[in-house]
Structures are given as C-alpha cells and as structure tokens.
Design a protein around this nucleic acid. Structure first.
Lengths: 108, 108
DNA sequence: CGAACGGTACGACATGGATCGAACATTGGG
DNA sequence: CCCAATGTTCGATCCATGTCGTACCGTTCG
C-alpha cells in the first residue's frame, strides 16, 4: 500500500474541519503545508515551523488533519509524506484556505 | 449605553474565529442566527435550537462569539438582543458563513 | 538476519474550557 | 420603592484532548 486511508472530501463534516483547525499546532502545520505546496515529510514541517513537540504528538495531529480531509499521507519507503488536499478542500470549502493565510492584525 | 463592546472586524484573528466555531453549541447558535436573519433574543435561540444549557453557560458562549467578532449584542430594555455581524464577517472572511450552512453528509 | 530509522498505537497525565449554581447587576412595572 | 425578569460574574467541578514516553511495526540496508 502506498496511500494511507483518508475520507472522501464530500464525506467530511465542517465540524471536523473547524475542530481540526482550532488547534494552534495544527493551524501552523496547515499553513506551512500551504506555503510548501508539495509533498513534505511531517517531521520536516516541524523543523521549518519551529514547533517543538514529540513525534507521537505529531503523529496524532497528522491523523486528526487527515481524518478532517485536509491532508493526504503517502508512504514513501521508510518515511511518510504529507500534502494539503488543496483543490478538493477549495472545492468543498471555497475560501477556507485563503482565510487561513490571513494572519490577522498581529504582525509587528 | 445601548451597545455592548465588540471588536472591530479587522482586529479579529482567524484563530479566535476557528476556536469559537469549533464548539458544537456555538456552531448551532451561529447557524440559528444565520437562519433567523434578524435580531433574536438569546434565550429564544435556545428554545428554537433545542439546546439545553444553563443561562450562565449561554452567556459565556455569547461572550466568546462576540469577542470573536461574529455577533453583536444590543441592549433593549430588560433583555439583550444578539445578531450575526453578517456583512462584516462576509467581508473579512468571504465564504465562511456559507460554509457553516453546509450540514455535511449527514442529512438522510 | 538483525540493527537502525521513521512513524504509529496505546496508556497515563495535565490542563484548558464547558458546564453549573449561586450571588449580583440592571431595567421595568406594580 | 420594592419586586420580578433577564443576563452577567464568579467559583467550583468535570471532561475532552493535547502531550509525553514507551512499546511496537514496517522498511531499508549493512
């Protein structure tokens, strides 16, 4: 198997998406994936964002995001690569990803 | 005073909005306000939505939603009326309210 | 084969936040 | 003037979940 099971985009409830994005770690993670734009190793994203959490915690967050339909996980040999399900998310929740790029007024 | 203090829409961080909407009670509340479309009394919304919580809990949720920039509270004599800040939210987070109307796949 | 690597699964723990009840505040009416 | 109606505030409690550590699993390579 080269793909990890993920829900169909139409089967994901908005509730799950909101809950998934309500966590600061996961929000930062999604923003980083959005900026990266390509398949990325999960632990690499950690390094890029400066988030300091254990690997089991990271695994947990990735699972939540995957079950919320936001990301996809691909098995590549010894590691797992993740990516935003960009087009699908945009189709189902138009404008959502653009919203997340909004950093808000806190940018000194 | 006939208005309760609320943040300017541009001062609202997306984080606060996501956290506010991640709670099922608040999400239901916002949906009800959206459907009602007009000024609505807080306790009325409770009756309309069938949510069963104490009045202090309701007050708490309203406060969270107000501080997230989503609703406005107006003092009208003995009661307080709440409403969605529809146009402002739509301007700052285009598509968000439409997303919330999406009930997801659970609609038999 | 067996060791190392990258990630997952599971149990335990701590903390944030949802909830409640009671006391307080404000307004309106008898 | 006092009382009823409506919300807010404050403490206390309880639970969901973010976090960690350890054990485990699949893959790769010596």
């Amino acid at each position: 198997m080269t793909e990890v099971r993920e829900p169909a985009i139409d089967a994901v409830p908005i509730d799950a998406v909101l809950s998934a994005l309500a966590d600061p770690v996961r929000l930062t993670f999604v923003r980083a994936l959005d900026a990266a734009g390509d398949w990325t190793c999960g632990s690499d994203v950690l390094g890029n964002t400066g988030i300091a959490i254990g690997k089991s915690t990271l695994s947990h967050h990735i699972k939540v995001l995957r079950e919320a339909g936001l990301i996809r996980t691909r098995v590549d040999g010894i590691r797992r690569l993740v990516t935003l399900r960009y087009d699908e998310v945009e189709q189902r929740f138009p404008g959502l990803l653009a919203m997340l790029r909004e950093r808000g007024p806190a940018s000194p």
